[in-house]
Design a protein around this nucleic acid. Structure first.
Lengths: 161, 161
DNA sequence: ACTAATTTTGTTATGGTATAACAAGTCTAA
DNA sequence: TTAGACTTGTTATACCATAACAAAATTAGT
């Protein structure tokens, strides 16, 4: 009985879009139609979406369907902190904490391919310290963990209690 | 006066190759010509090498020059733990600790593109614990940090004392 | 409103990364 | 020496990403 998304996912999308509009307004950025729709589609997929998957969806809706269109939208959304790229999947994921400065740390299920973003200040601090030990000034972090999620381990009951 | 590689890099290569042969022997794996040469070339570059860069080098030496050749060699070397893939660069790097079970954590300089592999058991343990909190069973970790290395910060003296 | 400057989008072409599928060759052990 | 397993050759293709330049839309100053 692995109900993957027990929450009302529409709420995620609505919140994310509202946040996006607020942030863009504050920063004098323009959340144009294609950018907005790209963000919605990424959220709707609820898991990392490849650039060309996104392109196909946009094309279905009558948007221009050449790669630069989607990569520009992705660049914009990433710069705005509204999405993250999952490097190990070459795919893009909506960020639920776009309003807070942070790094994207991910747990990726090998089985169902769901991805959970998590935050861990301790690890961030440790990494900065470790880098400094090597004389290194940290700028960006790619932290992507794979394995089996609770559902796919068949541990839904124990974990959800 | 940024001497990037003060050590004798030939030693790295020799050691790596010797380790590779020992490991393969132990595990009944065959370090064939193309695999061996691929490993050497990766080590010789001393920084992450793209699959097609490697392919070009192999082709120069008369090896078959179709992509599957190099990807097969890379897969073999990765499975054997002899190299790591740097996901954020789509490039491959020799592993200096192939004989020890470990995860590849990397510090990547944005400026000179040198990459340093580092080990940090504390972080590994923290990540396992954090994953477990989410009911997640960890299998692999991609930890890739970018920034400025000591040399590129112009801090060679301070750090090297 | 008009125009210049800026930003965004359209379009074509190309480069870079990776794998599928199947044939042929090589090694190993019974 | 032959079967089986593993490795390599070969062709084709799929997927990921950006360069370069033209056209359109938006914004700000007048």
């Amino acid at each position: 009985m692995s109900e993957e998304h027990a929450h009302n996912h529409n709420d995620c999308i609505d919140t994310a879009l509202a946040t996006a509009e607020t942030l863009c307004l504050e920063q004098g950025q323009r959340l144009t139609k294609v950018r907005r729709r790209a963000l919605e589609l990424i959220w709707e997929s609820h898991r990392p979406l490849g650039a060309y998957q996104l392109l196909a969806k946009l094309a279905e809706e009558g948007f221009n369907s050449a790669p630069p269109t989607v990569y520009r939208a992705l660049d914009f959304l990433m710069n705005a902190g509204l999405i993250h790229k999952v490097e190990s999947m070459n795919a893009y994921l909506g960020c639920a904490h776009a309003d807070k400065e942070h790094k994207g740390y991910f747990l990726i299920c090998d089985e169902c391919h769901n991805v959970m973003e998590f935050d861990y200040q301790d690890i961030h601090a440790s990494l900065i310290a470790k880098a400094a030990q090597h004389g290194f000034e940290l700028r960006s972090e790619t932290i992507e963990l794979t394995g089996l999620c609770a559902d796919c381990r068949g541990l839904a009951n124990e974990v959800r209690a």
